[in-house]
Design a protein around this nucleic acid. Structure first.
Lengths: 341, 341
DNA sequence: TAGGGAGATGAAAAGGATTACCATAAAAGA
DNA sequence: TCTTTTATGGTAATCCTTTTCATCTCCCTA
């Protein structure tokens, strides 16, 4: 019942441990052969013996010697958040492709908690980190970069960190797209609800909205309301009530949770979409099904987010490269929720 | 810039590596002293030096030597599922208390995928596993137990596995509670929608419902509809339409996702709760806010689920004990959705 | 024919912490 | 005073793999 080690395989196959190690770590090249200095027949024999004996590499020993753990950490703000939960799956799948094990840890949109999680994963010697930065999280992230651990920023940008990779959305464009869609359909009194959070994605979406309003001479109607993640359910009722009473025609909801909360209230209140209020939401949501008309929304390329993040991180780890930045384009899914009469 | 090892600490503190190791691994006893054969002053000096030098244990080395990784795996069916997402946080927090790092991997309610994830975490040499078994997942789970890796079953029971720990809900009781609540309020035509999944939690909830119906002489009205996780949004419309047309008075929804899907459709269809259809849901949901009346639902003690699972697993790891079983009690949160007229 | 290069293989040295076991000194008991 | 504990500390083996470097054979070229 004792563990099968590389030595057992070597003895059984009649070769040295070096050979076994070479074979076990060899990548398969395009031509189908193993990429290692071992003859094909020897390699085959080693493989056969390893399988027969049920050899499993001891990751601790491998990691001790190589200094690598083949483990990456993913730090979303909240794994139970729809956007990150979906992303997590793509990240997991892509990581397996490269042979990485994935460690998850939520930061709770909280810089101190991010620091804790960061300490934990660094103590674990992860090979790289994918992180959605929270407001005030620079210091925590710098801990990793200072140690030379590759970092990829996800979903949100952060200033003054160099050498990190980035996968973010063209958030200004998202704000523009939504606003222009409203305007194209003849709306003027367009407002927006956002979070007070000082994170780039939200700020940029607001900028996109504001600039577009201005560009179309609608500065007078420009207004961005703010709430917090914790109090959104309550605040949004007041905000929407107020909007309706002031005759606001359209509302842009720049995140999944804001869309869900707002539409929930709109439905509860019995407001008609788009007659009483035109709507553009964010991300896909079950909630849209509540309405007889389809709900227009901005879609983020979730799969690209996840896969690019892993690809960039892998490149940084493998080639000690400095991180690339990728800006992904949002898509507008049209819907009846923006039709004027 | 080189890594600080235990040897550096030992030299700097003027003691042997053994001492340092003892001190670093010592638990703090109740009386506040360290539980190790080292004098208090020496221990203090070691601690001070370790901190000053910035010593961090190398987990790979520790794990190689001790055979333990201080890592546990958590395998829910779907981490983006509300119930498991919430649980994950409790598990994470409790695990940190014991110094465990947590590895997550979703099984997708799929036995083959569970096998893959299981292989991955076993290759990783985790110290223990918390898993929500999927239908047909015995074999995958037995892989772990055969290797002597402690396993705790979460949320669902599974037959014929011995030595495993369990944390499950009294699912029959949940079914009974809901059904009796309806009956107490004068309903007779009570039906239930469930998944075709062959998992214990659902089956038991159905049993609880059926037995209660029978006990009250309502066997003639007893009916359980079935759908699948993938097609629920579509199926549920047909089922509910059918129920309404047949004059069914009340409906019990035994999972979070069923509650969400059903209530979404009920709202969309403009059905009145409880006039057209009385409802008892499962778990807490944002959706309940859609209704002017409060929605009665069964609540699972999520925190207890998570913490007990970790506690039991920890006990199994630490004391090589055989797994305990815990059955948690559901709570009925009353609401206007079960009031007759 | 000597020299060089390529291909295949092996020996042995890390890598850092844990831990079984041994050693010493001080305290306690006889 | 001498022996036995007890408290404290050290030595060295061990965990398993990766990786550097050396070796050896064979073949090709100048």
């Amino acid at each position: 019942m004792k563990r099968i080690t590389i030595k057992d395989v070597a003895k059984e196959a009649g070769v040295s441990v070096t050979l076994v190690s070479f074979v076990m770590n060899a990548k398969v090249r395009e031509d189908g052969r193993l990429d290692c200095p071992v003859s094909a027949e020897t390699a085959e024999k080693v493989l056969e013996v390893a399988k027969r004996l049920g050899y499993k590499r001891n990751p601790a020993a491998a990691s001790l010697r190589s200094g690598r753990t083949n483990t990456i950490a993913v730090i979303p703000t909240d794994i139970s958040n729809k956007f990150f939960a979906g992303l997590a799956r793509y990240i997991e799948d892509r990581s397996n492709l490269y042979g990485y094990t994935v460690l998850f840890g939520s930061s709770d949109e909280n810089a101190a908690k991010l620091g804790d999680v960061m300490d934990a994963v660094l103590a674990y010697n992860v090979d790289g980190i994918i992180v959605a930065p929270v407001a005030g999280g620079e210091k925590a992230i710098r801990k990793a970069t200072d140690l030379g651990v590759p970092v990829v920023l996800l979903d949100r940008d952060i200033e003054g960190l160099d050498g990190v990779g980035k996968v973010i959305l063209d958030d200004q464009e998202a704000g523009r797209m939504a606003t222009e869609e409203f305007i194209r359909h003849g709306f003027k009194k367009i407002e927006m609800i956002s979070y007070t959070l000082a994170i780039s994605s939200l700020k940029e979406r607001e900028v996109g909205y504001s600039q577009t309003m201005e560009a179309h001479g609608l500065s007078d109607f420009r207004k961005v309301h703010h709430t917090t993640y914790e109090t959104v359910d309550h605040d949004i009722e007041i905000i929407i009530q107020d909007m309706v009473s002031r005759g606001v025609e359209a509302i842009f909801l720049p995140t999944y949770s804001l869309s869900a909360a707002a539409l929930m209230f709109i439905k509860k209140k019995g407001l008609q979409v788009p007659q009483d209020l035109a709507v553009i939401g964010f991300d896909k949501s079950q909630i849209y099904r509540l309405f007889s008309t389809s709900v227009a929304h901005i879609l983020q390329p979730q799969k690209e987010f996840g896969e690019n993040a892993v690809d960039i991180l892998h490149d940084m780890i493998e080639n000690k490269s400095t991180g690339r930045s990728i800006v992904l384009k949002p898509t507008l899914i049209p819907g009846g929720s923006v039709l004027k009469d």
